Amino acid sequence: MLTAPAGLMIYVATRPVDFRKGADGLALLAKETLGHDPMKGVAVVFRAKRAPIG
């Protein structure tokens, strides 16, 4: 089981993103969009553009 540390902020993206950006590209997107550094106590959940149906 995973447990989040106290004070961890979790953000869920409302728009799908292109996962071909890779981890660095997604981290940069989170930093530019949210204004938070994902390497400093912030977790961001992304959804792929081509989400499975069903």
Rank of each mutant, 00 (worst) to 15 (best):
M1A: 12
L2F: 13
L2I: 14
L2M: 09
T3R: 14
T3D: 07
A4P: 01
A4V: 13
P5R: 11
P5T: 12
P5S: 10
A6Y: 05
A6M: 08
A6Q: 10
G7R: 09
G7T: 07
G7E: 10
G7S: 06
L8V: 14
L8E: 09
L8G: 00
M9S: 10
M9A: 13
I10H: 03
I10D: 00
Y11Q: 07
V12K: 13
V12W: 10
A13C: 14
A13L: 12
A13E: 09
T14Y: 01
T14A: 11
T14P: 02
T14N: 08
R15N: 06
R15G: 03
P16M: 00
P16S: 04
V17A: 08
V17P: 00
V17L: 07
D18W: 07
D18Y: 06
D18A: 11
D18H: 06
R20F: 01
R20T: 15
R20H: 12
K21V: 13
K21R: 15
K21P: 01
K21L: 15
G22K: 05
G22L: 09
G22M: 08
G22N: 04
G22H: 09
G22D: 03
A23T: 13
A23G: 02
D24V: 14
D24G: 02
D24C: 00
D24Y: 08
D24M: 09
G25T: 04
L26C: 03
L26F: 08
L26K: 02
A27R: 05
A27T: 02
L28K: 14
L28D: 10
L29R: 04
L29T: 04
A30L: 05
A30E: 02
A30F: 04
K31C: 03
K31A: 12
K31H: 09
K31G: 00
E32K: 13
E32S: 09
E32D: 11
T33C: 01
T33A: 12
T33D: 05
L34P: 00
L34H: 06
L34C: 06
G35A: 07
G35T: 06
G35H: 10
G35E: 08
H36C: 07
H36Q: 12
D37M: 06
D37Q: 05
D37V: 09
D37Y: 05
P38T: 05
P38D: 02
M39Y: 15
M39I: 02
M39T: 12
K40C: 07
K40W: 06
K40R: 15
G41A: 11
G41D: 13
G41H: 10
G41V: 10
V42L: 07
V42R: 02
A43I: 14
A43H: 04
V44H: 01
V44A: 02
V44I: 14
V45N: 01
V45T: 03
V45D: 01
V45Y: 11
V45P: 01
F46H: 04
F46S: 00
R47S: 10
R47D: 03
A48F: 03
A48G: 06
K49P: 00
R50Q: 09
R50F: 12
R50I: 06
R50C: 02
A51L: 15
A51E: 15
P52N: 08
P52F: 15
P52S: 08
P52A: 13
P52T: 11
P52W: 15
I53R: 11
I53V: 14
I53W: 10
G54P: 11
G54C: 04
G54W: 08
G54Q: 08
